[in-house]
Design a protein around this nucleic acid. Structure first.
Length: 592
RNA sequence: GGUCCAGUAGCUCAGCUGGAUAGAGCAACGGCCUUCUAAGCCGUAGGCCAUGGGUUCGAAUCCCGUCUGGAUCACCA
């Protein structure tokens, strides 16, 4: 293992230069392609201890290291780089131990990580931006789980507020009793349409009012539509039965629509919170904080926190009428979650326009003296933009999630039919594979990009199915499965232990080394909360495997030991691909 | 204006806890299917890593300035 090699290097340093290896950063990296060696040690940092040239330092470390570790076959020194080559037996053993590794599966003692994501607004059908949120949240949950944690995926639905009343008013006024069934439209789309309708009617009304000489502000105040909406919100808050009934009905339409989309893109939650149930939370916490002098009350009796000393601003926590704001609610839900589940980490997957909000939230919680303030993480991600800039509903450039998925499926279907490899599979299975490819292409496209960066999506050029894409990786998996099927058909079974006597090709060694670094990559991705790390890794693994596959035959090899080695290696690569794609929330087919 | 994030090939992105010749894919051009899946493989071409300085054996990577783009600074959520 790499760890053992690092340990040996430490011992060598300690012997040669009398330094405590704990104080020296030892970096062991894979040797760059084109240079002889498997691992590379950069010796520049050791020069100050050896008081010799980098070349001589590398050489003497090489001598001692080889003497100490029998797995090292040879070494060479180029400039300040010590490249070591491991023996073939070492690599065969690494492969064998991969095949025999068992999974530990007792979850109960693992730390709990809670991930909040998706958090849709019931007025707006899901679009491209939401997809990035959902894919990231889902993937990060899976990665964190793979890295050895328990995970709880939660969703906080924004189901109340003045904006929700707008679509209700529009439906009551102009809906004529229409339902998603009657309209033949998904529920979330129908409600979204009424929200748009309200805004259009409201705009018309304002224009009318302004014609009679009112200013913008006066018109807004006088608008009967808005007055009606405000009064509806009050009724809602008072629990008015009629209002609640409409609200519940329209929400149920939206949830049915959302569920359909979530199912299509393979997203699920362990618990769904609703703002209608959480928006009052936090008020008592703020009141108590006020008593303790953490917060201040203004003359108009609104409550604030002063964070100017922390480099932030003053932030309101309770309005002058005593009602809560967004921040108040988040203070409440955080307290509730830590009280109820006490997670090790609470990760919020929310766009970077909320960076400030979460900076404030953490500070407020800290000032309240809660020990969980440093367990709150904001996974902030960048906007998804179109080539011409931001998506604008006004200009009709919003890329709807359902439409996009449907388009992807159509493209996947036509490519698949062109290739004609799914010929003799039954229709249901075929559709399943096509959807797998379509959703896989979409998820991979979005997840391979560093979350914090804003990304560009071009709907016209669509998403590729060749190159660094989900389908490429799925294809590699299907290809390996095909080889394994052929082996089985020829009655060749895959042994879990390959003979140590086989001589390995460079490409085989490098593939084994790549598969071996899986665990390290998962830890890294979990630490950074970055699915892109996994995507990059699995892409490189596939590329490497395909090169190997192209240059060398597996089943036509004459040496039975080599067949065994290549089959086992192929099987392990396929397993690694499957695990990686699973962490991205992408399924892999056995045929495509 | 303050704060935060980003700027790498024509396009979309890796690489960023300093290390060898800055990598992929797409698009362009040229090869490879009677042989385990060609959604694949190989090759050609494409770069003042926004810019100016600094730190050092060494900078795309760290620090400072400048320019450009985005976000944010509500009794909205």
């Amino acid at each position: 293992m790499e760890k053992d090699i690092v340990k040996y290097i430490g011992e060598v340093l300690s012997d040669l230069y009398v330094v405590d290896p704990k104080n020296v950063a030892i970096s062991l990296e894979r040797t760059k392609p084109g240079i002889e060696g498997d691992y590379t040690i950069v010796v520049f940092p050791f020069v100050k201890y050896s008081k010799k040239s980098p070349m001589d330092t590398a050489k003497e470390i090489g001598v001692s290291l080889k003497a100490r570790c029998e797995d090292i076959d040879s070494y060479n020194v180029i400039q300040g780089f010590l490249n070591i080559s491991m023996t073939h037996e070492y690599w065969v053993n690494r492969l064998n131990s991969l095949a025999q590794a068992k999974k530990a599966d007792d979850d109960s003692n693992k730390p709990l990580i809670m991930v909040e994501f998706s958090s849709p607004n019931t007025n707006k059908p899901l679009h491209l931006g939401h997809l990035r949120n959902n894919f990231l949240g889902d993937s990060v949950s899976r990665i964190v789980k793979a890295a050895g944690n328990r995970v709880m995926k939660v969703n906080l639905v924004n189901d109340r507020g003045i904006h929700i009343c707008k679509s209700m008013i529009a439906w009551l006024k102009w809906g004529d009793g229409i339902t998603p069934e009657k309209a033949g439209v998904k529920g979330d789309k129908l409600v979204g349409d009424f929200y748009v309708l309200f805004n259009n009617k409201y705009k018309e009304e304002l224009e009318e009012l302004k014609k009679s000489g009112l200013s913008d502000e006066e018109a807004e105040k006088k608008s009967p539509l808005m007055a009606e909406t405000r009064s509806m919100l009050q009724k809602w808050e008072a629990g008015d039965k009629d209002v609640r009934k409409v609200w519940e009905m329209m929400n149920s339409w939206v949830y049915a629509g959302f569920d359909e989309t979530y199912k299509k893109i393979g997203i699920s939650f362990d618990r769904i919170y609703y703002e209608s149930q959480t928006y009052l939370l936090g008020k008592s916490i703020v009141t108590k904080g006020l008593d303790r002098g953490v917060f201040v009350r203004d003359e108009d009796s609104s409550v604030w926190i002063d964070l100017t000393k922390e480099g932030l601003d003053r932030k309101i926590l309770l309005r002058s009428d005593g009602t809560t704001v967004y921040m108040t609610q988040d203070i409440g839900t955080a307290a509730q979650r830590f009280a109820e589940y006490n997670p090790e980490k609470l990760i919020y997957v929310v766009g970077n326009e909320q960076d400030y909000h979460f900076a404030v939230l953490k500070k407020v919680v800290q000032k309240l003296g809660e020990d969980y303030h440093d367990r709150i993480f904001h996974l902030s991600y960048g906007m998804v933009e179109l080539p011409e800039g931001k998506m604008k509903s006004r200009e009709g450039t919003v890329v709807d999630a359902d439409d996009l998925v449907a388009d992807m499926i159509e493209t996947a279907r036509s490519i698949s039919e062109e290739n004609g490899k799914l010929g003799d599979i039954d229709e249901a299975e075929k559709n399943k594979i096509i959807e797998m490819i379509a959703v896989g292409a979409l998820k991979y496209f979005i997840l391979k990009v560093d979350p914090k960066k804003q990304m560009v999506f071009n709907p016209k050029e669509s998403i590729d199915f060749n190159g660094n894409t989900g389908p490429f990786i799925q294809y590699t998996h299907a290809r390996i499965c095909s080889v394994l099927r052929n082996a089985k058909a020829q009655n060749i079974s895959v042994s879990k232990r390959v003979s140590e006597d086989v001589r390995l090709l460079d490409k085989e060694i490098s593939l084994i080394a790549s598969v071996c670094s899986y665990g390290k990559i998962v830890d890294e991705a979990a630490k950074k909360l970055d699915p892109g790390q996994i995507a990059n890794y699995v892409y490189n693994l596939c590329k490497e495997y395909n090169q190997f596959y192209h240059d060398h035959s597996i089943l036509k090899e004459t040496d039975a030991n080599i067949i065994q080695l290549r089959l086992l290696l192929s099987q392990q690569v396929a397993l690694t691909i499957k695990n990686c794609m699973n962490m991205l929330g992408i399924e892999v087919p056995e045929v495509m």
